[in-house]
């Protein structure tokens, strides 16, 4: 470790996942982001920390929320942000992912924010470029900034992560949000449960350090946080679950099921929500217990922290390994 770099220095060039981050590294993201939450509430939101830096949002999969969040974050730090909707350009023309990476690299960006429908694709791309890469979601693998924003949202309301019990409910099988959250919450000393029908749970999920439940009543018993996941529409009609009606009946979050959780349990959802499928409106819109809108707000702050740490560390030349 280099002299002068404190213990919590971020030791990685990229942010590809939560897996492998130390508690101190995670704390550093959260602490820095915490300050940005306040900044973002002021009338004058703009900083010039990243002036002159170029950030390219490179989304190989449709996204509105995450892409916008990263764009706002980059602009508030003074960077030049370019959005590339790759889904409708190079991929259609048959360019390989590596060729696209080389092309982007030649434009000398400082940070690439990449989302891709295939697990592992963001890492592959990161190996071919000279700049920092932020994984904005790769297939069913990781979505690290979502886990960080979820963690900060919880920490701001509960004051801690250590010792909390968090139930992640729904389509665990296909969820990168679930995988990143499991890694982060376990690293920070929370207890993690997953709750889903068996068709939506991957094999040996317990090996990731979670307790698996198939019944909401048992799974939500005495939890502090209920984290609902989106069920993709193509999985609703008989392939993984029989119908939205049955899914909501057994796994949709409503006050009846929430009663099993602690009285002050809070509700989260990464969005976009399917109301009446995985979550009922009365619960989603409960201003005392739902953190869903807070998650969106904190998302911008967390992405500002990520961009700052990656771009600044790169500039300092302390970007081992």
């Amino acid at each position: 470790m280099q002299a002068g770099v404190c213990d919590s220095a971020f030791r990685h060039r990229h942010l590809l996942g939560i897996e492998g981050l130390s508690p101190a590294e995670i704390e550093r993201f959260l602490d820095l982001a915490d300050g940005y939450v306040e900044l973002n509430r002021q009338a004058e939101k703009k900083r010039s920390l990243l002036r002159g830096r170029t950030i390219i949002n490179c989304f190989f999969e449709n996204s509105t929320r995450t892409r916008t969040s990263f764009e706002v974050a980059g602009k508030r730090l003074g960077a030049d942000v370019i959005n590339m909707a790759v889904a409708v350009s190079s991929m259609v023309k048959g360019e390989t992912l590596i060729d696209t990476a080389m092309t982007l690299n030649a434009m000398q960006p400082d940070v690439l924010v990449v989302r891709h429908p295939e697990s592992g694709a963001v890492q592959l791309l990161s190996e071919k470029v000279d700049c920092a890469v932020v994984n904005a979601g790769d297939g069913s693998h990781e979505h690290p900034t979502q886990a960080l924003l979820d963690a900060l949202t919880i920490r701001r309301r509960k004051g801690r992560l250590q010792g909390l019990t968090v139930a992640i409910c729904g389509d665990i099988l296909h969820s990168r949000v679930a995988r990143s959250n499991i890694a982060l919450l376990n690293t920070m000393g929370a207890r993690v449960r997953v709750v889903a029908p068996r068709t939506l749970l991957p094999a040996e999920i317990e090996r990731l350090g979670v307790e698996a439940f198939h019944d909401m009543g048992a799974g939500l018993a005495d939890v502090d946080i209920v984290m609902m996941l989106r069920l993709q529409s193509e999985r609703m009609h008989g392939s993984f679950v029989p119908s939205t009606r049955e899914y909501f009946h057994f796994y949709g979050l409503d006050y009846d099921k929430l009663r099993a959780a602690k009285p002050d349990a809070l509700i989260m959802h990464p969005g976009p929500m399917n109301r009446g499928v995985e979550i009922g409106s009365e619960v989603a819109d409960d201003i005392d217990r739902s953190l869903i809108r807070a998650q969106v707000e904190i998302g911008v702050a967390v992405r500002m922290a990520c961009l700052e740490i990656l771009a600044r560390d790169l500039g300092d030349g302390s970007s081992a390994p």
Binding site: S239, R245, E246, H249
Partner: peptide, 15 residues
């Protein structure tokens, strides 16, 4: 077990 006994989609087994 499957809708319309067609062997493609799960029925609402729980309900």
């Amino acid at each position: 077990a499957t809708t319309g006994l067609a062997g493609k989609q799960l029925t609402e087994m729980g309900l």
